[in-house]
Design a protein around this nucleic acid. Structure first.
Length: 419
RNA sequence: GUGGAUGUGGCGAAGCGGUUAACGCACCGGAUUGUGGCUCCGGCACCCGAGGGUUCGAUCCCCUUCAUCCACCCCA
């Protein structure tokens, strides 16, 4: 039986990774502009970090984690997201002791045991920001503008920024009760999953796609209408900042994030055309998370984006990332051992000068080597033949023009450097 | 976890219960014993996803399984 890659994972080949590197370079460039420094946390953590941080009731914790016992009997989990780890690191490394806010970014693989489909994988890659230690609305706006800025620089069109406020411990519980009071009479009419959601997380009933639940939910009270003064003012301030920054947004009172740790601002940026998983990124404020996992109460905002979805969006819009990777020189040589050795030595010397060089490692025919040079789109070929070599020379051929000159071997490097 | 579609050589793609599984592209070699992009010639599937079964006989029929894609759920 042929061994294949695990379900929901990908082999990214050079043609693809070249594009990833371009996007990653842009991300790092933006991080420099916005003042975020990279953090790299372990790919696996104590299981409890996620069950507490992400939330026991979430789908991620209940059925999507790659959990295993290590040889010491500790329960470990492959990270399903990076925010909990970043918070843990913030506490563990006492980053609260320095200048606030602390602004971090991460980029790397995450793991969730889900059934793959368009835009969803078991190992996928997220880039994300975490801004610790500021409760200011401007912090929320900065994080949102980063995401907005990024997609614009990638020329992704048709973006929809949706924002909402999911309240805080001061206003959400009362709202939850009010919501349950509203839905209780209709309990029998709701779909099976929503009946389940009714107890666990009634907010999510708004997310239901079933006709009946939608209709019933349409009349339900909105959290936006019952935010406490603090959350209300905060949300208004965030909207004002977005407006002054000319970032168009859409208020979506039904936007509910799937992770338990969100408070106040929640946002999402979507595009059409990449399948059912249309969110390019999602994030918001999580003022309670650091305390939840053992730190002192610290306000924080952040967001995460899916790398794969960036490429899905670009593909859907027939756009692509430009990469440069043309070959400078292909060295051709005859079969003779001394010719091969001279060719190899020249390859080493040229590479040391920053010139990209390919050569036939085995013993393909002259014609086959020429063909290979053509196919690799080499700008130049250097040809080691017996006659020239006897005179200490080799032929240098410009592949585009077909012009060819003979040069002393020691002069080739200088000649190529000038052209 | 549930549902739908698909699974033929590196890629795309015919095919039919029956002796040697089309074709195109790619790849390799040759036509010029030292020179590319064109042309011509030749080579390239003993496993037709895997395992069973039906049949005189199955790539084509049945069952199972695996994988891929898409959707639900949920999310990046």
């Amino acid at each position: 039986m042929q061994i294949t890659r695990p379900r929901g994972t990908n082999d990214f080949l050079p043609e693809i990774t070249a594009k990833w590197q371009e996007v990653e370079a842009l991300l790092r460039c933006l991080c420099r502009e916005y003042g975020y420094g990279e953090i790299r946390t372990p790919l696996f953590e104590d299981t409890e970090l996620f069950s507490r941080g992400v939330g026991e009731t979430t789908d991620i914790v209940q059925k999507e984690m790659y959990t295993f016992a290590d040889h010491g009997g500790r329960s470990m989990t492959l990270r399903p997201e990076n925010t909990a780890s970043a918070c843990r690191a913030y506490i563990e490394n006492k980053l609260y002791g320095g200048v606030q806010p602390v602004k971090l970014y991460y980029l790397g693989p995450m793991f969730r045991y889900e059934k793959p489909q368009a835009g969803r994988f078991r190992q996928f890659h997220q880039f994300g920001l975490e801004l610790f230690g500021s409760a200011a609305p401007a912090a929320d706006a900065e994080v949102i503008s980063f995401a907005w800025d990024l997609y614009h620089r990638l020329h992704i069109k048709g973006l929809q920024l949706k924002i909402n406020s999911v309240g805080c411990p001061a206003c959400r519980p009362a709202y939850k009760t009010a919501l349950q009071d509203y839905f209780r009479p209709y309990l029998g009419e709701l779909c099976a999953t929503c009946r389940d959601r009714f107890e666990r997380n009634p907010l999510r009933i708004f997310d239901c796609k079933s006709e009946i639940c939608r209709r019933i939910g349409a009349e339900a009270p909105l959290l936006l209408d019952s935010l406490c003064p603090e959350c209300g003012e905060h949300f208004t301030a965030v909207q004002e900042l977005l407006t002054t920054a000319a970032i168009p947004f859409e208020l979506n009172p039904r936007l509910v994030r799937g992770l338990d740790y969100y408070t106040k601002t929640a946002f999402e940026i979507e595009v059409a055309g990449i399948g059912a998983q249309s969110a390019l990124c999602g994030g918001g404020r999580y003022d309670g998370l650091i305390e939840e996992i053992g730190g002192t109460p610290t306000p924080a905002v952040g967001f995460a984006l899916g790398m794969e979805r960036i490429f899905a969006a670009l593909a859907a819009q027939n756009d692509d990332i430009e990469t440069t990777g043309c070959l400078d020189v292909y060295i051709i040589s005859g079969m003779d051992k001394r010719l091969k050795q001279a060719a190899f030595a020249l390859a080493c010397r040229l590479r040391g000068s920053g010139i990209s060089v390919e050569m036939e490692l085995g013993d393909k025919s002259f014609k086959a080597q020429m063909k290979a040079a053509d196919r690799l789109q080499a700008a130049w070929t250097v040809i080691f033949g017996a006659n020239e070599f006897a005179a200490g020379q080799a032929a240098v051929r410009n592949m585009a023009s077909g012009e060819q000159i003979e040069l002393p071997i020691e002069d080739i490097r200088g000649y190529l450097m000038q052209h």
